[in-house]
Design a binder for these strands. Sequence first.
DNA 1: CTCGCATCTGACAACGTTGTCCAGGCTCTA
DNA 2: TAGAGCCTGGACAACGTTGTCAGATGCGAG
Lengths: 349, 349
Amino acid sequence: MPETTRRADQHLTSRYGNRPTMKDVAARAGVGLKTVSRVVNGEAGVTPDTERRVQEAIEALGFRRNDSARVLRKGRTASIGLVLEDLADPFYGPLSRAVEEVARAHGALLINGSSAEDPDREQELALALCARRVDGLVVIPAGDDHRYLEPEIRAGVATVFVDRPAGRIDADVVLSDNFGGARDGVAHLIARGHRRIGFIGDMPRIHTAAERLRGYRTAMEDAGISVADRWMSLGATSPERVRRAAEDMLDGPDPVTAVFTGNNRVTVTVIRVLAERSRPVALVGFDDIELADLLQPGVTVVAQDAAALGRTAAERLFRQLDGSLLAPERIELPTRLITRGSGELPPAG
Amino acid sequence: MPETTRRADQHLTSRYGNRPTMKDVAARAGVGLKTVSRVVNGEAGVTPDTERRVQEAIEALGFRRNDSARVLRKGRTASIGLVLEDLADPFYGPLSRAVEEVARAHGALLINGSSAEDPDREQELALALCARRVDGLVVIPAGDDHRYLEPEIRAGVATVFVDRPAGRIDADVVLSDNFGGARDGVAHLIARGHRRIGFIGDMPRIHTAAERLRGYRTAMEDAGISVADRWMSLGATSPERVRRAAEDMLDGPDPVTAVFTGNNRVTVTVIRVLAERSRPVALVGFDDIELADLLQPGVTVVAQDAAALGRTAAERLFRQLDGSLLAPERIELPTRLITRGSGELPPAG
DNA sequence: CTCGCATCTGACAACGTTGTCCAGGCTCTA
DNA sequence: TAGAGCCTGGACAACGTTGTCAGATGCGAG
């Protein structure tokens, strides 16, 4: 080996700051490039003495393998992407964490991004993740057309949709039983004697909101109750609109004696509205909320298991990656009615 | 150009599934490789006609640039890493989201990982992120020795610590005023006439816990109150231990008339314990919690702004990246006392 | 008509790693 | 002692992109 290469570590050509490469390590240890690679990857075929020399060089130079190059060469990035609505929402934290744990168990990192419920941003994010060549993608849809992912899926990006179904493409989906949960929650109120029951939910273009509304309607229909239009508020996204909607159905003609709320944010606002009033109004909310048991009365909810959604989706994703081609499947997880008092109040007024 | 190359797209050599490369696009469009690169990156110097042909080829093949290769070549990944404790904790969701937003504004993606409060896992994660060559790292420390990051920082990885200071290295830190917040919270109780005040917090090896404890001690000392050992519980991590600690100081000799809780999880458990009792006990908690205003009484808290912590840290990080070398700085954000009732109860018992 | 200049294009190397393959040295046996 | 076989180590190409640089093309002016 010529003297010039042996001293390569003394004039590292910089890019990432001044990071040593395997070549630098090899030069310093006086071995070949591939030998360093073998040591770093724990491959067989290196004598203990050589290995020690290489390890020392790695230590001395502070070498750390450049995974970008590795990825380029190997074709797998050992990372998956998660596109969700808003990480600050307490529903998505546990979901994301669950996905992360499964990824970790498979040696993968998680890149996540928030779509802020904006279809364009969802697409931008998902495609950016694909450009990074994530091995797989877990998507909580904001939009309702995911054909833009077709080339990616064909190219081998494992993809699973969670919480809401994919739009206009055939893919794996993991959902909560939104319809059944809402129906049971409303039926619970009906069983307590309520007939005038309000529903406040998100825009029906969001699948979960539509399904929960359908559950509400079905429960009412099954009980032979006809629903007045003013009992239903759809698209109540901001706290102000939720508040107005609640007040309308509580104070209008034929006032409701119970309210079913379509998601955790709506529930919280409605709790506030009800707390200001003397007439007791029953409440069942979709999604569990922290401290719900400590309020007076405790808040009865239809709980879904966010962590289980994430875990199931991630496991499905790695099953796609590990092996064979699976036919797209729709997995539905059950919800659980948790009675704490607010849903058991009898009709009043 | 020979006919054979023009048809290169018909025999793509696979790796990432079957992804077309720039070479494939070039062959199909009948142009050179570099021209495709120029079009993809919106560089000047391509005639409209050529550009159109390239765009068509990109469209037809479903080409998407491989950012791994790009990263390898350019040396910047346009991604930053966030190591936090647990994404499922409602404190970290908004923090992570805030970091993400700043990253997005700088065109970067966010990779995050949960350390689960385990120093080894923190290190493993941080180094894995460095191997991915993230441009920067936001770390919420679990351990108290971060010398392992020294080579990385020297190599140019921008690094900011949040919520807790870095251990044994000199680096940027963004903190809440844990000491001042706790001191003020406890002083608030003292001002209401309390003398026997309990403190329940996390292990003092965690910086925030230690600082809050110090705030408690200082407030008591400033008021000339000597603290009994049994009024303090440190290292109460599980709900069970918090419960036991609370019961001990409530039922033992010299029972406390007020409790200061050191973080949101402790606060929630103590609320549960207090709700079971008839004797009113005052409570001030560190960290705000959702629905705190709806409980009876409302929960008085020392609130810190998780989103502001994240935002400030991320902005600092990109300032490091954008430009010059900055001397490490310690930024402290104020806390805010929010009175809601529980902290204003007079001493009883 | 030719020269010079500006504009557009493409060949080539490089980024840092891993897979392939072969060379050289060793041990063991005949 | 020679030959076979094994083990270790290294040279080289490839992954897909971008930066450099030089060549080609077209246009206007002399």
